[in-house]
Amino acid sequence: MSRLVVSNMSINRAELPVVTAVDLVAESGAISVVLGANGAGKTTLLEGLSGIIPVAGGTIAIDGRELQKARPGARSREGLAHVEQGRTVFRQLTTEENLRVSLHPGADIAEAYALFPELVQRRAVKASLLSGGEQQMLVIARALLTRPKVLLIDEMSAGLAPVIVTRLMTAVRKLADGGLAVVLVEQFAALALSIGNRAYVMRRGRAVYDGDCAKLRQSPDELHRLYLGGAESAVPA
């Protein structure tokens, strides 16, 4: 059982606060969905968590071990995996080589192919030649082979056909059911809320909602209001 606890997280970009005092929890077996409009600070939050950019304040801990000062590589070795926005495959490497880069001694490439059988026949193909959906599968599978405890996924569905998005969402749900703690950032809410457990909505760098996915799914009006503002105060669930 693992648990990611983020408290009072603040992150600046070009000296300006982009994420302010965010608290977030992700637990084994559950998906924490982070929603929010363009520019709300979702990507910045994940980049701060994985160490791509430094944080200005707050703590990040996996099972009580604090990570906010560690380098990205060290955070990865502590069990934090980040699937970045934009499908960052190693373009010059084949599918299988991409997977071998991240292969943890205790992991097996077969696990990746079991999750996404689509990749088997593409194993010798350069990653730059894969379709968008295949690339997304590859980066998720690649992250999985590091044997993470916590998986951060940013904008997994951007630009993909609905049938592929459903396919990916099902796979992510499976990963969570297998014991992973997942933080799923999405701009398109409905599907994410249907597979998620806990939901956060960010607006202008703050978490303005922290509660059940199911509850939020049943009140689209409230979701709309959270996205666009209106009530300025945080809305506890």
């Binding site: 380098r71 070795r77 190693f90 071998r100 880069v101 992250a143």
Partner: peptide, 24 residues
């Protein structure tokens, strides 16, 4: 070699390699 593979990954996308725990 595995080190060579990691080096090619590093050359391709340094940050993605580092995020996977490659000792950049």
């Amino acid at each position: 070699t595995k080190i060579g593979l990691n080096l090619r990954a590093l050359a391709d996308r340094p940050m993605a390699a580092e995020l996977l725990g490659v000792r950049v």
